[in-house]
Nucleic acid binder design. Structure first.
Length: 868
RNA sequence: GGGCGUAUAACUCAGCGGUAGAGUGCUACCUUCACACGGUAGAAGUCCCAGGUUCGAAUCCUGGUACGCCCA
């Protein structure tokens, strides 16, 4: 083995071997209990970013853990067509080539995107492999696959028949840049500094006027009323009167509706049903006419009047304000900060427009999803996301599912050219069922990307067919995803799953954290603080990246990714590598896992540690406490195995028996199996270097196929004195401490004394680790004018410092020690003297404290004796 | 305006009723035969503030303050 782990070659090598050996493929015939998870399908446009790295690392840790536990673990991979994102990408390419999708035509454009998809899909898949994801590639899916398309059409057609999908004119959020409708979820609100214009509208009978306040004066061209609150005393006499529209000359009524906030502006607002969601609602309630003055291109329509038609909406705003001012209708202008709605995708200012779109009524499904979480059929970690879930699902609105895009699932609806009859069918009808007309035109729109994503957990298994896979692997065991897509995806999967399969799509949901930069800032391209996981894997190794993500993945808190953390993880991999290297160097060929091991105190202690930590690690993983699991293993390897056990075993190993070497081989084997889910590459590499040829017959040669070690028979062995190694550690560090404090060169060997007779078997270890000349064990007081002494729990230790020793310094040292003990004892004595504590606190707590106090009192007495 | 989350060592974070931990950084020392991507010793904290519950609160409750996120 080399001196350091070369992750670059290992990473490339092992993934290919894992794949070739079918280590990640599900085994439906195995008779094992199934455990399944589906990947949150990354966009085909995408590159692996830190969010993907985190979510997929956690998936992989869990999948490898479950596979090792003996489940038939299946992780289904796949990619998402990502409607808008992908189409935008290709459109950008076209623009660079001096053309666009309209010139190209729909069919050619769609072809072009497919070509792009074929070319680029491999990138994200390759990156998942680099991350070590143990997915079953034989079941790779794409959201536009024919089988998934069939599922989409099935849901669409059945929902339509049930009346849950319908088409109609509604006010939607229109993205003028992308030229498509969006769902409410795709709208982002941003605070902008703007103006509040106060406009004067004169009453038609000349009896006065009212002043309305607006942030969008250009829409006044489409006003069909002015509204006041029905209880507003100021305007009682005006309700029902007509007024002259300042610019169009139309007469519009003053109406009353309780949506008006009397405290806002003048308490009197203009009503533009065609261009504002609230006004649209008022218009519906009061049967007001609706005048569309802004078109889908965000330019003023002919309805806006000759003076404005064709103007961009923002240009029109300036013109309207200028005209109003010129004619004396502008009362005043105030600075005003308000929220505007932007497209989450293009960033364009959205235009609320009335448009013919497809909608899905999800109220019934939402009720089911609410109940599933309420009843515990779906469990959230962290739980606090339940509150948000409930709020959103109880207030859910119809979902606008149609998009004016080319890239996506085409809506399975055809209109008869002759009679206008609408046909919603699985396949294109050959003739109109009403008039027999042969010309049927398919709806040009496609579905919101999330429509197909919602079906993902069961469409990947061949639904709507009742496949064997569906029966075996659905519902999936867990869903791991970011809370940012709680509504977009998680809620919709829950609703779709419950509606169409009658089952929850997943039993548990773990919401992973957000990965931020080293100072806790959100990563963004504009800030330039993006940490690229591909570069990290290049520089620190995939295992270091994975371990860093896992150890920081405390539920409910964000992750601050830093080079310091990555270095720590890389160093950990190196530590594991070198510990293994040490073991490997000291083994003879004849030692295998079948060699009968021999256990001494150190081994019994190590077994105890392994048993304790692996039990805790298993529990932590079952409960998604990835950070705890990784932290436990980190310290097990570094502190217990390397710093304590190996240091102790060194003395034996250099001259040890095969039986002793078999013990350490077992320990390493167990550690590798436990760490493999977290750091698969380095552990697999070590496994080959150390365990090859030493595994029992029939045992898989790949670590990726071996079992989770918590039930290893070795761990059931009990024996020895569990307190002896901790006592050894205390004495060892006391020697080292005395050496450092006495100013002794660490390399200088001095004579040592110890009153803890039970540690005599560890003489050689003490000598070698603390670099002592000798250790003399005796009950007698070891203090002398030439020695330095320390009192530890259970006895005293001393070092011979002839020539080096300063008696005055020794006294000062002991006095300091005395003071320290007194100070530590003070609160202990006080609490033990407290009647209410002793009587009311649980016995264990009192006993623990008493033990601590006794130990300190004993040391205090001994230090006092030394000072005499 | 409503909801949620977070405030702990210089930094990034664990802990979440029994009296404070990790990683990194810092100081001093050590190239000892797995590892300097290492080892040893050490310094470093009104656990945001104010009340309350409790024998006991960083931890639970109430109210503030600051920051972040989500929904109107």
């Amino acid at each position: 083995m080399d001196k350091a782990f070369d992750f670059k070659t290992a990473q490339e090598r092992w993934y290919a071997l894992w794949e070739a050996s079918k280590a990640f493929e599900a085994a439906p015939e195995s008779g094992k209990e199934p455990w399944s998870i589906v990947i949150p399908p990354p966009n085909i446009t995408g590159n692996l970013h830190m969010g993907h790295a985190l979510v997929n690392t956690l998936h992989d840790v869990l999948t490898r853990f479950k596979r090792a536990q003996g489940f038939d673990a299946l992780w289904v991979p796949g990619t998402d067509h990502a409607g808008i994102a992908t189409q935008m990408m290709v459109e950008r390419q076209l623009k660079a080539e001096g053309t666009d999708r309209h010139k190209l035509g729909r069919a050619a454009f769609e072809q072009r995107i497919w070509a792009w998809k074929e070319k680029n899909q491999g990138a994200i898949e390759h990156q998942l492999k680099r991350l070590g994801c143990s997915v079953d590639w034989t079941r790779n899916r794409f959201t536009l696959d024919p089988s998934l398309n069939r599922a989409v059409r099935h849901v669409f057609v059945e929902s339509y028949k049930a009346g849950r999908i319908f088409r109609g004119p509604r006010m939607i959020q229109w993205d003028p840049t992308l030229q498509t409708a969006l769902s409410d979820l795709e709208v982002k609100y941003e605070e902008r500094k703007g103006k509040l214009w106060h406009l004067r509208y004169p009453l038609a009978d000349g009896s006065g006027d009212v002043v309305v306040a607006t942030t969008r004066p250009e829409t006044m061209l489409g006003d069909t009323a002015v509204a006041v609150h029905p209880d507003d005393a100021r305007y009682q006499g005006m309700i029902g009167k007509l007024m002259n529209h300042p610019l169009t000359g139309r007469q519009i009524p003053v109406v009353a509706d309780s949506f008006v906030d009397p405290a806002f502006g003048t308490g009197c607002v203009k009503v533009t049903p065609a261009h504002d969601p609230n006004d649209f609602a008022v218009g519906q309630r009061l049967q007001l006419p609706s005048i569309t003055i802004i078109g889908f291109d965000a330019k003023m329509t002919a309805e806006a009047g000759e003076a404005y038609a064709g103007l961009d909406r923002f240009e029109a705003r300036k013109r309207v304000v200028a005209d109003l001012e010129a004619q004396g209708f502008l009362v005043k202008v105030e600075d005003y900060t308000h929220k505007i709605s932007l497209s989450d995708r293009s960033g364009a200012v959205l235009e609320p427009l009335v448009s013919e779109q497809w909608f899905m009524d999800v109220k019934e499904a939402a009720a089911k999803a609410l109940e599933a979480v309420r009843s515990g059929a779906i469990q959230f970690t962290p739980e606090h996301h339940v509150a948000v879930w409930q709020h959103w699902l109880t207030n859910i609105q119809d979902w606008c599912i149609s998009r004016q895009l080319v890239w996506g699932h085409r809506i399975p609806a055809w209109t008869c050219a002759s009679c206008g009859e609408l046909h919603v069918e699985m396949e294109a009808p050959s003739a109109c069922c009403t008039c027999g007309g042969k010309e049927l035109i398919q709806d040009p729109d496609t579905l919101d990307t999330w429509f197909s994503s919602a079906l993902w957990p069961f469409s990947v298994f061949g639904w709507p067919d009742k496949t064997a896979e569906l029966a075996r692997y659905y519902p999936t065991s867990v869903l791991i995803t970011g809370y940012d897509i709680l509504f977009f995806w998680v809620a919709r999967m829950a609703m779709a799953g419950l509606t169409w399969t009658g089952q929850v799509p997943f039993r548990k949901v773990y919401f992973n954290s957000l990965v931020r930069d080293a100072s806790g800032q959100k990563m963004s391209k504009t800030k330039g603080n993006v940490i690229d996981p591909l570069e990290v894997m290049e520089e620190y190794g995939t295992d270091a990246l994975r371990f860093s993500l896992a150890i920081m993945a405390a539920p409910g808190t964000d992750i601050a990714m830093s080079s310091a953390r990555l270095e720590a993880s890389r160093n950990f991999c190196n530590k594991l590598w070198n510990a293994s290297r040490f073991v490997q160097m000291n083994l003879d060929e004849s030692v295998t896992l079948e060699t009968e091991p021999e256990f001494g105190e150190a081994e019994f202690w190590m077994i105890g540690r392994l048993r304790e930590v692996l039990t805790a690690t298993t529990k932590a993983l079952e409960e998604f406490r990835f950070h705890e699991a990784s932290d436990l293993l980190y310290h097990l390897v570094w502190d217990d195995f390397c710093a304590t056990y190996i240091e102790l075993a060194k003395v034996q190993l250099l001259s040890g028996t095969r039986a002793q070497k078999a013990a350490i081989l077992h320990f390493l084997d167990i550690l590798l199996r436990a760490l493999h889910p977290f750091v698969p590459f380095v552990t697999e590499e070590i496994h080959e270097a150390v365990l090859e040829g030493r595994l029992p017959k029939g045992e898989p040669t790949l670590l990726a196929q071996r079992s989770w070690p918590v039930d290893d028979p070795i761990l059931r062995i009990q024996g020895g004195d569990a307190t002896i190694i901790p006592r050894f550690q205390t004495v060892l560090s006391a020697f080292l401490h005395l050496k450092a404090e006495g100013g002794v060169d660490p390399a200088k060997r001095v004579a040592a004394f110890c009153s803890l007779l039970e540690l005599e078997p560890f003489t050689e270890a003490l000598k070698s680790i603390a670099r002592l000349e000798s250790v003399t064990f005796s009950k007698d007081d070891p203090s002398s004018p030439t020695r330095t002494v320390a009192v530890v729990a259970g006895g005293t230790v001393a070092l011979e410092l002839a020539g080096l020793k300063d008696p005055a310094a020794e006294k000062v040292k002991l006095e300091k020690e005395l003071a320290k003990l007194e100070k530590e004892l003070e609160p202990l004595r006080a609490r033990l003297a407290d009647e209410s504590f002793v009587t009311k606190a649980p016995e264990a707590a009192v006993a623990k404290l008493r033990g601590q106090a006794e130990e300190k009192e004993q040391r205090l007495t001994q230090v006092q004796a030394l000072l005499r």
